[in-house]
């Protein structure tokens, strides 16, 4: 990156050098882009192969026979439609509530004036530090006791609780750059605190809300450990757990796993492209900073 920047600083010297620098930079940018896009293509090919081709042959190779039946098998045998719906439901619910709770908490910590705000932030941050496997058995026992095992609610609650710390940390980084002028003006105008939060601060943070929404969405969508442990009924399982039904005692159906992975990436890809536009649009609302 420093190389790029040095090239760029010399742009002023002469237009020839400048053009060369830009050329090199674009070459690198495009190169990296290919590098980042290739995994999708690779995964797609992977999903159309059988074990014999997946292992021991060049990963670059096109599928010999395009095994579309991998998809068919996944969809019929693998119960994908149910898993798919469950994943969407859990992800959407958890993401929305996480963002709301995190925004409320961050606002109270970063914008409001009280003595123990630092401690409150630390309290939340510590939540990020626990390795999830440590919490597994205690959580399982808790849910067992209150009868929430094998229930989507347990998963949603856990996703919210375990992603709140991360979300609050990211949000608080942004709140610290946010100018207070507008809020102060609103207070002078006699606006209530809730109004300030919902109608002024929240809209100003659209770019970061979109960012955290993307991050939360991806994390929840791909989460495996909790979903695997707390949901046992087939009708409640999520896509990531569904993949496991192709892992056999001795033989694993990798083609089917590839197909499931491709199917499961489509909705996040669409949602991501949509949300990442929101990050740009959000600038207009939040351009009062700096």
């Amino acid at each position: 990156m420093t190389l790029l920047s040095t090239v760029k600083t010399k742009q002023n010297d002469s237009s020839g050098l400048k053009r060369l620098g830009m050329g090199i930079m674009y070459l690198i940018l495009v190169g990296v882009a290919v590098f980042q896009l290739y995994p999708l293509l690779w995964l797609f090919f992977f999903s159309l192969k059988g074990n014999r081709e997946i292992f021991g042959q060049s990963p670059f190779a096109l599928p010999e026979d395009w095994l579309w039946e991998n998809y068919q098998r996944v969809w019929t045998v693998g119960n994908m439609d149910t898993y798919f719906f469950n994943s969407v439901f859990i992800t959407v619910t958890a993401v929305v509530l996480t963002l709301l709770f995190a925004s409320l908490a961050t606002f109270a910590i970063m914008r409001m004036k009280w003595k123990f705000s630092g401690i409150a932030l630390l309290f939340i941050m510590v939540g990020y530090m626990i390795p999830i496997h440590t919490a597994l058995v205690p959580l399982f026992s808790m849910f067992l006791r209150v009868g929430l095992l094998d229930n989507h609610l347990s998963i949603i609650l856990v996703y919210i609780a375990y992603h709140l710390p991360l979300t609050v940390m990211i949000l608080s980084g942004f709140y610290s750059q946010l100018s207070r002028e507008i809020e102060e003006a609103a207070i002078v105008d006699g606006a209530s605190i809730h109004r300030i939060f919902f109608q002024i601060t929240l809209p100003m943070t659209t770019p970061v809300l979109s960012t955290t929404m993307i991050i939360n969405m991806i994390y929840n969508w791909n989460e495996f450990v909790f979903a695997n442990t707390f949901l046992s009924s087939d009708s409640l399982r999520t896509l990531t757990v569904g993949i496991q039904s192709f892992v056999g005692q001795y033989l694993t159906d990798w083609g089917a796993i590839g197909a499931t992975l491709v199917i499961s990436i489509v909705p996040v890809l669409v949602a991501y492209l949509f949300l990442s536009n929101r990050i740009v649009e959000g600038v207009a609302a939040g351009s009062v900073k700096g």
Binding site: F89, N151, H152, L153, I156, S235
Partner: peptide
């Protein structure tokens, strides 16, 4: 309202389970 929705959602999941699987735990 949010909390209620949350609980209701969870309840929904439960119903699904019972609906699909008559011999639920």
């Amino acid at each position: 309202i949010l909390m209620a929705t949350l609980v209701a959602c969870g309840g929904n999941g439960d119903e699904d389970a019972n609906g699909d699987d008559t011999a639920d735990t």
